[in-house]
Nucleic acid binder design. Structure first.
Lengths: 336, 336
DNA sequence: TTGCGAAATGACAACGTTGTCATTTCGTTA
DNA sequence: TAACGAAATGACAACGTTGTCATTTCGCAA
């Protein structure tokens, strides 16, 4: 039985127990092939006996790096799970751990503050997950020696950014409608302050304008089904409304329910497309066509971008992860 | 302008620049009141000028602690977002950061492995989020100097555990049915390997047996609506089925849709209760009564438990966070 | 001005690891 | 057996911080 007198077992303790020098213990851990097998076994036995674990602080102090990537969560939303999942998996694969801090609910936080806080923690690089605007976005400068990647649909003057192609996804959905013979597309937005919602709206608008169509007034929603339902009631009264793009699936479902309650059928009378492709989880035999973003892939890209930039923190790139249109049967083909 | 010759700026560099000793710089950071204002200003100026940031490794090496709590994610599911949110907020509040690692998809990982990995990272204590069984659960022993909390519904011989009271929640739902005059309750389960599903089933069974009712064969689902729909079709044919408890809201919705498609009304013909209270997000005017667990609270408790145990890692406790029955109108009162 | 206690500052060791370079041990050949 | 080069091991400094204790400086009373 190991005596548990000392709080922490150091390499030196192991060395003494094994009758070798401290440096040899270090070698057993970092370059096992360079030490004779008999010695190695003795050291391993001593480590086991004493319950030795390498001291992270000492090791990283000497090495000058941590093997950790910082993640700042400004806002934790639905899609964030998959994104974190991607980040974590990619990190694991490359031998990095994650160091995480989060803006507290209701607390205002700037990029500068977050960066200051993060840069005092064990991190070799950092990822900011930004789903809403912050005041100092444009003026922010990342620490010169710490690769920084921002997950956001906006372009940043100095930092690398990674994002879903929300705008492109919305455009894709609109064009899908138009290509199927629809003459116009109505839009139900998410919460005003959400960057996702803003980008989706922008893409919708751009797609229509490109084809010379005047975009109708968008309807304001809040991501939840009830707001979609309310929007649906309004849309049901518009005779020219044959196509509705809702900024997420929940609202799309609300829209569909409202249309149905008003005696309109989907897709026969009105076609609908949503975002995020999650309705099938909740609705049996869901028919909703939806634009799906690959959040997991997004996380992986973000992490890889950080790791790739560790040696050249001031490099800058912009990555867009395209969305996918998951076709079901909520869009009617009006051609011929 | 600061000259950027050296990679990292140390306290010594600041000290030289400010014309004071290294120790004074340290004091400016850790006990500002003990240094004269004029000196302090000079030091602050130098820190600013040189872009000094305290070196985490050196600091924690000296202090013998990190100010970080480790979080191991064995499985990242829906409710996990809120839980992480709670953990992160509570950590922030107490001045801790999080160090996170995750079991990779498909990779088998034991508690022992996870603990070994984690204990080489910067952590003062750790939280394991365990939603499925692992092989070494019962035999696992946490490092004696690292407070370890496991989030799991099962009791552990040596570690503190924190969990939603899934069993109690299921019992609560069943009793609600029975108290409203129902004579029996059918159950639709989630994925077999899920501990949540198992516990919910256990609570359902216990509640019935307590009242001397023989529990009917449970129906196997997979958390998604389609499996609930399939179960609903089966249940629609059982004349004695007046009450259905589904292990989550999505399946509950599937059940309701199936019943409706078979000409049965909810709640007039059959009553339904789900879990997680999330249907309202997707379904406008949702009527589903549901057992909601406070995942955020769960995370907060877990973190507080770790922090409370930092000084006495071998202490052991068991925390259950009760669920809440969110009443809507999917349960009919059969009493006279 | 001098003396004194308190406040402010500094010198130096220590935390536990890894890199550098020196030393010892080993196996081989003459 | 001696001599040699290669392999194995060790001694010591260094990473950047904080704790301990010594020293200097300050403000104020005599």
């Amino acid at each position: 039985m190991a005596t548990m007198d000392k709080k922490n077992v150091s390499m030196n303790d192991v060395a003494v127990a094994a009758g070798v020098s401290l440096k040899t213990v270090s070698r057993v851990i970092n370059e096992p092939d360079s030490v004779r097998e008999s010695t190695r076994d003795r050291v391993h036995a001593a480590m086991e006996e004493l319950g030795f674990r390498t001291n992270f602080a000492a090791r990283s102090l000497k090495l000058g790096r941590y093997g950790c990537i910082g993640v700042v969560l400004f806002h934790l939303s639905g899609g964030a799970v998959d994104m974190i999942d991607g980040i974590a998996d990619a990190a694991e694969e490359r031998g990095f751990a994650l160091t995480m801090i989060k803006k507290r609910a209701g607390e205002k936080m700037t990029l500068a503050e977050a960066a200051r806080r993060m840069s005092q923690l064990p991190v070799d690089g950092m990822i900011f997950n930004l789903r809403q605007m912050v005041d100092d976005f444009d003026t922010f400068e990342a620490p010169k020696d710490l690769k920084t990647v921002i997950i956001t649909p906006m372009e940043h003057p100095t930092c690398s950014t990674v994002s879903d192609d929300q705008e492109g996804g919305a455009r894709m959905a609109c064009e899908y409608f138009l290509d199927h013979g629809h003459k116009n597309v109505y839009f139900v937005s998410g919460k005003k302050e959400s960057l996702s919602s803003q980008c989706r709206m922008k893409g919708w608008r751009a797609a229509l304008e490109t084809r010379g169509i005047e975009p109708p007034e968008p309807l304001q929603g809040d991501w939840n089904a009830d707001s979609g339902y309310a929007a649906g009631l309004v849309l049901a009264d518009k005779p020219d409304c044959t196509a509705v793009l809702a900024a997420n699936d929940c609202m799309a479902n609300g829209v569909m329910m409202a249309l149905r309650d008003r005696g309109l059928r989907v897709p026969d009378d009105v076609s609908v497309i949503g975002f995020d492709d999650e309705l099938y989880k909740t609705i049996p035999n869901s028919i909703l066509t939806s634009v799906k973003f690959r959040h997991r892939e997004l996380g992986i890209r973000a992490l890889n971008e950080v790791v790739a930039g560790l040696e050249a923190p001031s490099s800058r790139s912009r990555t867009l992860v395209s969305g996918v249109l998951v076709e079901r049967s909520s869009v009617k083909d009006l051609r011929a």
